[in-house]
C-alpha cells in the first residue's frame, strides 16, 4: 500500500493502491445512483406484481392484472376483425361479385386491402404491378389461362395450379421433344406455324415450315390448344394467337417450350388465406388495368 494522497481536482483521497501508475479515488457512490437503483427496482417489483413473473415448481405467479399476451392479441385481432366485418367486410362476404364491383364505396376498402394482400402474397411471382415476368403470367394482360371472371379467378387462387389442394387445377404440357414424340425438324415446323399465328417476325427459313407445321399442330397440339389455337380454359391451355407469351415468344423460347413441355405452379392459397381475403384478391385482380 502506498500512502493515501489528496487529489487536487476532486479534493478526494486516493485508496492507496497504485497499479502501474493508476490510482483510484475514494469517492463515495453518488446518491443519485442509489435513487436510480431504487427507482428501477420499484419498477421491476411493480412488473412482478402486475404481470406473470416468477416461476415456482410447475407454475408461475400470474400477476394481479391477469394479463396474458396470447389472450390480448387474440381479443384484439377478433375485435378488429369484427369491426371490419361490420364496416364493409360483411357486405363483401354477402354480395356477389358484380354487385360489389358496381359499388364504388365498397370497392374502396377492397382495393386498399387487395393491394396490400397482393403485394404481401402474390407480388413475389407476379410482380408488384402484377405484370408478371418470365415464367409468371401478366395478370393485367387479360390473357387468362383458366378464365378471367372474378369467380374463376377466386377459384384459381383458392385451389392453385398444380398445387397441394386436393381439387387443385392441374395441367401439363407434354415434353414433345424430350419424350421423342416429335423430332427436331417437326418441332421447328410447328414452332414456325405457332409463331405465324400471332404475326411474329418469322425466323430464317420459317416460310417453308408453316404448312407442314400446321399439320403437326392439328395432330399433336389441337387436342388441348384447340383447332384454331385459341386455347382451352377448361384445361388451362393458353391461347397461342394473342400477344401474351408467358415463357417468351422468340424461336428459341418456343422451341424450348415444345421440347421440354411446361408445368407451371401456383400455390393453393385456400390453405393460407380466408375466403374473404380470396374474394378481395379476386376483385382486386379482376379490376387491375395494364400499366399505361
Amino acid at each position: 500500500m502506498e500512502p493515501r494522497k489528496r487529489d487536487k481536482v476532486t479534493g478526494r483521497t486516493t485508496t492507496g493502491h497504485i497499479w502501474n501508475g493508476i490510482e483510484e479515488l475514494e469517492t463515495p457512490i453518488p446518491k443519485v445512483v442509489f435513487a436510480f437503483l431504487a427507482g428501477t427496482f420499484l419498477f421491476a417489483v411493480l412488473c412482478w406484481v402486475l404481470y406473470p413473473a416468477w416461476p415456482f415448481g410447475v407454475s408461475y405467479t400470474k400477476g394481479l392484472l391477469g394479463f396474458d399476451q396470447r389472450n390480448v392479441v387474440t381479443e384484439q385481432v377478433a375485435k378488429a376483425e369484427a369491426a371490419r366485418i361490420e364496416d364493409w367486410g360483411g357486405k363483401v362476404e354477402a354480395l356477389d361479385y358484380a354487385q360489389i364491383e358496381a359499388d364504388p364505396a365498397l370497392m374502396q376498402p377492397v382495393r386498399e386491402e387487395g393491394r396490400r394482400l397482393f403485394e404481401d402474397n402474390c407480388a413475389a411471382c407476379h410482380g408488384v404491378k402484377a405484370t408478371g415476368g418470365p415464367g409468371f403470367p401478366d395478370l393485367t394482360a387479360k390473357a387468362w389461362l383458366w378464365g378471367g371472371s372474378s369467380e374463376t379467378i377466386a377459384e384459381t387462387i383458392r385451389v392453385g395450379i398444380n398445387g397441394t389442394a386436393e381439387d387443385t387445377r392441374s395441367s401439363q404440357m407434354l415434353s414433345f421433344g424430350k419424350d421423342q414424340m416429335l423430332d427436331r425438324e417437326q418441332i421447328l415446323n410447328v414452332v414456325a406455324y405457332v409463331r405465324s399465328l400471332s404475326d411474329l417476325e418469322p425466323a430464317a427459313g420459317d416460310a417453308a415450315r408453316i404448312e407442314p407445321g400446321k399439320e403437326i399442330f392439328a395432330q399433336n397440339c389441337a387436342s388441348c390448344h384447340d383447332e384454331d389455337a385459341k386455347g382451352n380454359q377448361e384445361l388451362g391451355a393458353p391461347n397461342l394467337t394473342d400477344e401474351t407469351w408467358i415463357y417468351g415468344s422468340d424461336q428459341q423460347a418456343v422451341y424450348t417450350t415444345v421440347y421440354n413441355g411446361r408445368q407451371g405452379h401456383m400455390p393453393s392459397w385456400g390453405e393460407r388465406l380466408t375466403p374473404l381475403q380470396i374474394k378481395i384478391l379476386a376483385l382486386y385482380v379482376h379490376t387491375l388495368k395494364a400499366p399505361q
Binding site: I29, F36, L37, T40, F41, W48, W54, G63
Partner: peptide
C-alpha cells in the same frame, strides 16, 4: 418478447433490463 416464450420469462427479462441500466450508466 411477444413470441412463444412464456410471458413470465419475458417479464423477468424486461424488469432486469431496467435495473441493468444503473450499473451500465455507473
Amino acid at each position: 418478447h411477444y413470441t412463444a416464450l412464456p410471458q413470465w420469462v419475458q417479464t423477468l427479462g424486461m424488469s432486469f433490463s431496467a435495473m441493468l441500466l444503473v450499473p451500465s450508466w455507473a
